[in-house]
Amino acid sequence: MQNSKTQETLVGLFVACGITALFFMAMQISNLSSFADENVYTIRANFDNSGGLKVKSPITIAGVRVGRVSEITLDKDEFVSVVKMNIDARYKLPADTSASIYTAGLLGEQYISLDPGGSEELLAENDVMDITSSAVILEELIGKFFTENESE
């Protein structure tokens, strides 16, 4: 029969370990520490085909993540994909920035890479980017390959 003091100490240790584990999970395993949602502004871009892009897909400039996709909807008049992006407020983008959808690795997730232009004007809240490059669709690529071959 354990002394109740010993018991209480062990229970305290147990609970402390459990809470530490919860914190560990939150900090070390998930993205809680990295992304703070407060200072962002929204800009939009239209793509003919947004491919496998998802909400929360990363947005990068020169390989550095500057934001995340917040919404993907269909424009009912022109039938293009309207992608809304949350960009960290620290980064101001020129008005002629272009957005392209790339794939990370061969089978990885898709992301948007922004290529800043040289314009003096900056993109403001809710502006639309003009220059966009759609995702690469594997079937189209294969189709192009075959037709090119045939034409030789």
């Binding site: 919860l22 999970m25 939150a26 070390q28 395993i29 998930s30 993205n31 809680l32 929360k56 993540r65």
Partner: peptide, 19 residues
């Protein structure tokens, strides 16, 4: 190992749901 994990696992969706 750690950075891929941290950027993919979402606190709300994964951790909270697991809890």
């Amino acid at each position: 190992y750690w950075s891929q994990m941290q950027s993919t696992l979402d606190f709300q969706e994964d951790i909270i749901n697991g809890v």
